[in-house]
Simulated scan of single mutants.
Amino acid sequence: MLPSSRKPYTNVTLAHRQRWRGRVGMMLVACLSVLAGMTDAIGFMASGDFVSFMSGNTTRLAVAISAGDLGLTGRLVLLIATFVLGNALGVMVSRFSKRHALPLLLCIGALLCGAALWPSTETLPALLAAIIAMGMLNAAVEEVNGLPVGLTYVTGALSRFGRGLGRWLLGERRNGWRVQLIPWAGMFIGAVIGALLEQQMGLRALWVSGALAGLLGLVTLMIPRRWHLGFMPR
């Protein structure tokens, strides 16, 4: 009787923990998406270039090539390559820090604060620092309870939400598709905040992004280590 009486309790406990892990993970995703949206809006309004939305920069690159604009083509190639480098650096920092999020987010915060300190007459170095930071941000959370999430881009999230909606309309009842709106909403809210900040502070609004990255790094210390290991890239 004892083993059978313990089994339902264990299953309920595991399910309860999994639900809480999912909620905490998606709250973290929402906050990090706010950071990404804020930074992207600040960078775009200050320079006209996207900081985290590389799909937009890729389309602009194709248009620049077709127009024969070599200067813009070179600039956009540099921005896209820098973003790729940032993603690689994010994984490396995560591994070197034994997959603790705090060192990663502190590095991101330092890059954003450094960008804010750069003279406003030369926006490219500040822009590159912010792009590296946004690339690195993707190493903070890769999935939550097996659901893939994106922090600095939301096209995939909207696509997964739309496909889930289509299945739901067909009568299928699968879990997980609704939460894909969380990173989209976070990025949208962050972009609104970033646009308002840039109107008041210009590129120095990246100070706020840097401070938020550091604050979120401290918040991750309150997340159980086992949970966070499941969020970050392996």
Rank of each mutant, 00 (worst) to 15 (best):
V208N: 02
K98P: 08
L216N: 00
E198S: 10
P8R: 10
R173Q: 13
A191L: 07
V34Q: 02
F188H: 06
C31S: 07
P103Q: 11
L229S: 10
W207E: 00
T123M: 12
W168G: 01
I223M: 02
S94Q: 07
R17H: 13
G48S: 08
A41F: 00
G166E: 07
S159N: 10
V144L: 03
W168D: 05
A15I: 11
S159C: 04
A157S: 15
G74N: 01
G194E: 05
P119R: 02
M45Y: 04
S209A: 07
R225Q: 15
L169D: 00
Y153M: 15
L112C: 03
R234Y: 14
E172P: 02
S52A: 15
M27C: 14
A110L: 14
L147R: 14
W227C: 05
F83D: 13
G164A: 06
I131C: 01
R234M: 12
R226P: 01
V29N: 13
L147G: 05
L35N: 06
L206C: 07
S55Y: 09
E143F: 02
G214Q: 03
S33E: 03
G194C: 12
L117M: 13
G146F: 10
N87F: 10
M222D: 06
V192M: 15
G186C: 08
N145P: 06
D69R: 01
T58K: 10
G176N: 08
L151T: 12
L203R: 00
G22T: 07
V149Q: 08
L70P: 00
H100M: 12
E142V: 15
M232H: 09
R21V: 13
E172D: 15
P3I: 08
W177F: 15
M136F: 10
V84G: 05
A195T: 13
L158M: 14
G214L: 08
T58Q: 10
T73Q: 03
E142Q: 15
Q180F: 05
F231M: 06
R204H: 11
